[in-house]
Amino acid sequence: MIGVPQFRDRRRLPQGPALDFPAAQAARFTQGRGLKRGSLYRGAVGQWVWVAHRISGVAIFLFLFVHILDTAVIRISPAAYNQIIGMYHAPIMALGELVLVAAVTFHALNGVRIILIDYWSRGAEFQQHMLYILIGVFVILMSVFAFIHLGNTLFHQGALL
């Protein structure tokens, strides 16, 4: 569904019965436009957004695994937990956290887009618009987060620690 260009380029679509399946839509879209057929699903940008959603989801899950383990150390003793959590205080970790929050923010925003595409009656029609809105909201949220987070870590008390 994502990235199938039926609405973006509606007027240029060959006419025919309504096709519900993305693969069928994609196949029709490639007809008679000199695009290679059969080898690969060829969507538009949306296809790469889907790949990014997938990679971010798996990456967050890997972090979740580590994060549940490091938090579980709190059950051993206060000193053990403070030592483990102290490993996150390295400067490089501040950047890692920034990347992680960016992955979560993108995944969450695109998750909303997917939900709207699937459940809102006009969702598919506006999927491209929602992508632009996603980028805008992402930039705003990440700017705010980076400002506060880097202020608390790398630039704490004015110094680049």
Binding site: N82, E97, V101, V104, I148, H149, N152
Partner: peptide, 21 residues
């Protein structure tokens, strides 16, 4: 989760046993 642990107060570096418990 992110607002209460990473953004509010002193941020991530405030997290320790006393904070979480």
């Amino acid at each position: 989760h992110l607002i209460t642990n990473v953004l509010m107060g002193a941020g991530v570096r405030q997290i320790n046993f006393a904070f979480v418990a």
